[in-house]
Design a protein around this nucleic acid. Structure first.
Length: 679
RNA sequence: GGCGGGAUAGCUCAGCUGGUUAGAGCGCAUGAUUCAUAAUCAUGAGGUCCGGGGUUCAAGUCCCCGUCCCGCUACCA
């Protein structure tokens, strides 16, 4: 096992085009905060960095839509996110931002170093250019019809309806979202990071050297590496971002994924002049906390960048989590389907630890999980209130009742006392083991086990009964109970810092430090504790209903907005001549079979009345080959032939598509002879 | 289609390199108890470990075939 002198923990930079929601928290920030708090409690040298990711096209689009500057957008969300994290007790050593001067210089220098070392390749490509706006169009600035699902509001990089990844040139009828004009292709030069050059190293480093990484992370990396890495562009034509620090690169900025991870470095620089020992010493253990969408950047791209630059260490682990769903549906910022942290903090004041607890207990560590308000309520009421809060309250109330709040001196311990206390060191060990292996759900269970131990101890020793017959014995019982309570204050701190602080306050104690966990003399006899107050309150049905109603409203709003989007706007007028150039005929399918190794393609043979021809059609998800044979269809016969999967498709079968993407054959109402013209 | 992840009690999940009667929390049932926020404690019910083959003295755990869910990726003239 490698020994490290210090730790560098990074948490994925939240993108500053929206607030933070429970999915972000469960996936990244709660785990990282638990991990870091644990290291700090142990007295380790640890630095935890994070910050807002403030460049990139979506921010410029949001700014345009709201009629403000990109800077306004990022200022708003940066502050919102920063405050929300603080509100929940997510404690970074620094929460920086990628618009900071330090970051501009750091990222710029980083790029320049790679450039000077010849680590980039250059290539010119054709890209869409908006002649009205006088600017190249980033993929996100181009909208058009998705070639997969015909959604007419697909972006140049992705269709949000069917989820396909697209290239801008895939879009049918592309238009600029800036001016609405039809963009033209123009040549532009960009720099690329040749990942293929680093492939051999990455394979060795990850596939051989880090077999201990989580299955989802390792598997995803293996998948990428097996497919073979391609050069990735590191610059973009955009006016929002860090300028490419190279002569003749006017109007070009660093691609956001290139600049964002460097944000970890600049944040550390802003934190301490000693930053290099965290980034450049083999004795530093670097861990990236991220969501599964970021695996490729943190395991493949960023390490390749760091290595190309030279002098930097690589991450020791990347414990990426899966995704959290909300009430059975995917969380979505654009669809407003989320529980927003800043709203939670307003709706449930003082209940930070309840959310922290629930999100940790239900964290998507191995697969996607579901957050439901009912589960939230149950965990709070049945676990936090009933087990943890109740035990602490029992111990304290009894102490005040019998001894006016003074910790009694323990007499001789019985075997049972000793057995009970001896469970604590074992619990500590298990807790540490789980935390160090990023198994936070299990670790939380261990911590809660301490409260269960306490409840059981009280139930078994029954001090409220014994006090009538053997008051001396009760002193020991409560002394033991209070020591367990004090231990709880240590064990739960990483998970529930607010509650830990409350317990300490009630015990009238200063923090003990992690190493004292398991000790049975944390509280000296005679020490007077403060008045107890309840650690947790039950969450009422009404509170849960209010949240469910809120979600139902969001759903209704989405449904109301949907039909408007579904009705595609009319296309520009065409002349009759344009129309008559299309030769559309009726035809009958005479043979049909699935194109091997495809999901959507059918290989059809049709009788067009003119001839028999082959057509490949993407309808296999809706029509079985058998049911196609004999069907009369409508075919655009003079469409340029096109090769698909080795078959030349000579025409297009016309289909109707509804808002959900379902395809339906178009056919004449009565059977007509093949080759009849449609006009 | 290719690749990756997942499928274990009603629910949420543990089960590491194969080894006694498959575990935990919640929920449920019964009993005990009253210091405690009707909280707690004990006991119990509840599982063809997705299905089918195979390897092995022994498989939830390894191999092969298949089903379903999530993600990445290719095809939609």
């Amino acid at each position: 096992m490698k020994q490290f002198k210090r730790h560098l923990v990074t948490s994925a930079l939240p993108y500053a085009n929206g607030p933070v929601h429970i999915g972000h928290l469960a996936g990244v920030y709660i785990p990282s905060d638990i991990y870091v708090r644990y290291l700090r409690l142990k007295g380790e040298d640890v630095v935890s960095v994070c910050g807002s990711d403030e460049h990139g096209v979506p921010i410029t689009i949001k700014a345009r839509a709201e009629g403000v500057t990109p800077q306004d957008v990022v200022d708003k969300y940066h502050n919102m996110i920063k405050n929300a994290f603080e509100g929940l007790g997510i404690k970074f050593d620094i929460y920086s931002r990628t618009t900071s001067p330090t970051h501009y210089k750091t990222a710029s220098d980083f790029f320049r170093t790679l450039y000077d070392k010849g680590e980039f390749t250059e290539a010119t490509s054709m890209q869409y250019y908006d002649t009205e706006a006088g600017a190249f169009l980033a993929d996100r600035y181009i909208m058009g019809t998705c070639p997969h699902c015909n959604n007419d509001r697909a972006y140049g990089d992705q269709c949000e309806k069917c989820g396909s990844t697209l290239a801008a040139t895939d879009l049918i009828n592309p238009r600029s979202t800036i001016s609405g004009s039809v963009p033209v292709m123009r040549e532009t030069k960009h720099w690329y990071l040749p990942l293929d050059k680093h492939e051999a190293f990455l394979k060795q480093w990850i596939l051989e050297g880090h077999k201990e990484w989580k299955a989802n992370v390792y598997g995803q990396c293996k998948s990428w590496l097996d497919l073979g890495l391609q050069p990735r562009a590191v610059s973009r034509d955009l006016d929002w971002g860090i300028p490419v620090p190279v002569e003749g690169a006017e109007g070009k900025v660093l691609y956001v994924w290139f600049d964002a991870p460097i944000g970890y470095i600049s944040a550390t620089k802003d934190l301490t002049p000693d930053w290099e020992k965290y980034w450049k010493s083999e004795q530093t253990k670097m861990v990236h906390f991220i969501g599964k969408d970021n695996i490729v950047f943190h395991c493949i791209v960023f390490p390749a960048m760091l290595r190309a630059h030279g002098g930097y260490i690589l991450p020791e682990n990347v414990p990426a989590n899966e995704f959290l769903n909300l009430e059975g549906d995917k969380i979505s910022t654009s669809r407003n389907w989320a529980v927003w942290l800043h709203e939670y903090l307003e709706d449930f004041p003082g209940k930070q630890d309840v959310l922290r607890y629930v999100l940790c207990a239900n964290a998507p560590e191995t697969k996607d999980n579901d957050f439901t308000w009912k589960d939230f309520q149950a965990r709070c009421n049945n676990e936090l209130v009933a087990v943890l809060g109740n035990f602490v309250n029992r111990a304290m109330v009894l102490t005040h009742k019998y001894y006016e709040g003074a910790v009694p001196a323990a007499g001789e311990l019985t075997d049972y006392d000793r057995d009970t206390l001896s469970e604590m060191p074992a619990l500590k060990k298990s807790l540490e083991e789980n935390l160090e292996h990023y198994r936070f759900r299990e670790a939380l269970k261990d911590a809660m086990g301490l409260a269960r131990l306490g409840n059981k101890y009280l139930a078994d020793t029954e001090p409220w009964k014994v006090v009538k017959t053997d008051p001396e014995r009760v002193k020991t019982i409560l002394a033991v109970s209070l020591q367990i309570t004090a231990n709880l204050a240590i064990a739960i701190e990483p998970f529930m810092p607010f509650t830990a602080a409350k317990i300490l306050k009630m015990l009238a104690c200063e923090p003990f430090g992690w190493e004292r966990l398991g000790e049975v003399d944390l509280l000296p006899a005679g020490h007077v504790i403060a008045q107890p107050e309840l650690l947790f309150e039950k969450i009422e049905d009404a509170d849960i209903e209010a949240q469910l109603n809120k979600l139902a409203d969001k759903k209704a709003a989405n449904a109301a907005a949907a039909p408007a989007a579904a009705a595609e706007p009319q296309k520009p007028s065409i002349s009759f001549d344009d129309f008559s150039r299309m030769d559309i005929r009726t035809a009958t399918v005479v043979a049909a079979e699935r194109v091997p190794k495809t999901k959507k393609l059918l290989h059809l043979t049709v009788d067009t009345g003119i001839d028999r021809r082959e057509i490949v059609s993407g309808i296999a998800e809706f029509y079985e080959p058998e049911q196609m044979v004999g069907k009369q269809v409508v075919v655009l016969v003079n469409l340029e032939p096109r090769e698909l999967k080795g078959i030349t498709s000579q025409g297009m079968i016309l289909m109707a598509e509804d808002a959900s993407g379902k395809l339906s054959l178009v056919a004449p109402a009565d059977k007509v002879s093949n080759g009849s013209q449609i006009k």
